Amino acid sequence: MSEPERAPSAAATFDPASATIAIVTYNRSSLLTRLLESIVRMDPKPGHVVIIDNASVDDTGPVVESFRDRIGTEIVYRRLDTNTGGSGGFSEGMRVAYELGSEWIWLMDDDVEVIPDGLARMGAWAPRFRSIQGRRYDFDGSEFYWQYRVAEALAIPIPFAPAGFDESGYKEMNSGCFEGMFIHRDIVAKIGLPDPRFFIYWDDQLYGWLASRHTTSVIVDEFVLRRTREIKQWDMGIRHMNASSDAYRYYIMRNRAIIQQYYRAHGVYRAVPFTMGTALTFAKELIRLLAVERTVRGTSHLFRGLRDGRAIAKDESFRPMPPLEASTQPVA
């Protein structure tokens, strides 16, 4: 496949109203406020803003209501009965946006803000690609590096994938990040909704991998988001390693088994390299504990995740998320 030249502005062929921003939030109303304020300043704006509230017990609901008359586009607010994690929240957000008839769905956490012309920047690439990731500024204004390539056999990110862009302005990826994934409904129809069984972690990487099996997925040289929450990290230059939590440590190991089930379903699972990927993930988390959090406490959650993952890997009833009906009409 020959590489096309970098896209010029495509405002005439991309309709901002065809896009929906889908946000997942949980007990972080101050961060959500900052994100919604940034959407107020956006030009152009999306047709809808979907907010999935993972059963927050703070003032998230009133905060959302305070923006209805200010934001300049329609807000659709869904408060879930229980906390379904980021995975469940993005699955529900994708479902709501899809049923609204959205052509494009832009996913994001509550701890980012949108650059004012971010939607126009993403839309400029929309006529050419169907799965697009923009770039982000970190909390301190530096360029945030994201590992956009996955070593498929190992099912882990490639940490040394080149960070720079050439004159084309994009790089092909086979991964995804729900902090900024911009995806067309046709691809969602083919691969289904994000899998809520992940709860947190690996869900977006797998979803991006699934998308890349149906379309050319790209990360583009466009800064469209800025992170608004400072996270303790180990700075390694252009790359960094963030602090984590016990829940993170548990799910990063447990959810390897869900990826394993998807790999089996798609005929790409190979036991030896996949097991190597799991071992490398475990080692990376030990390094994270030592280098970022400067402790060895937390390793029990890694082992617990491995243990519970074995039951998932052996579950013969496990099925991947089904495709959606490929209709472009909203559901009544």
Rank of each mutant, 00 (worst) to 15 (best):
A22V: 11
E92P: 06
H240D: 11
N27V: 15
A120C: 09
A257Q: 05
C177S: 12
A265P: 09
M122W: 08
V57F: 03
A265Q: 14
R149I: 15
R130E: 14
S142D: 12
A189K: 03
F139A: 01
E92F: 03
Q329T: 12
K232N: 13
D117N: 09
Y170F: 15
V114P: 04
D221S: 06
V76K: 00
S175D: 11
R249H: 03
V24M: 01
I200L: 06
S131G: 14
P330G: 07
S131Y: 15
P62A: 01
N54G: 00
V220F: 12
Q329R: 06
A97L: 04
A120I: 07
L32Q: 08
V150F: 09
F178R: 09
R227V: 08
S131W: 14
A153S: 10
A291W: 09
C177L: 12
L119F: 00
W146I: 10
G176Y: 10
L286V: 12
S87L: 02
R304Q: 11
D109N: 14
H48C: 13
Q133L: 15
G237Y: 10
F199S: 08
A19N: 04
M108F: 08
P330E: 04
A161Q: 05
S245D: 05
M94F: 11
E230L: 10
I219L: 15
R149M: 13
Y145T: 07
S9Y: 09
T228S: 00
R28A: 15
D81R: 07
W234F: 04
L324N: 05
T13G: 14
A211I: 13
D109L: 00
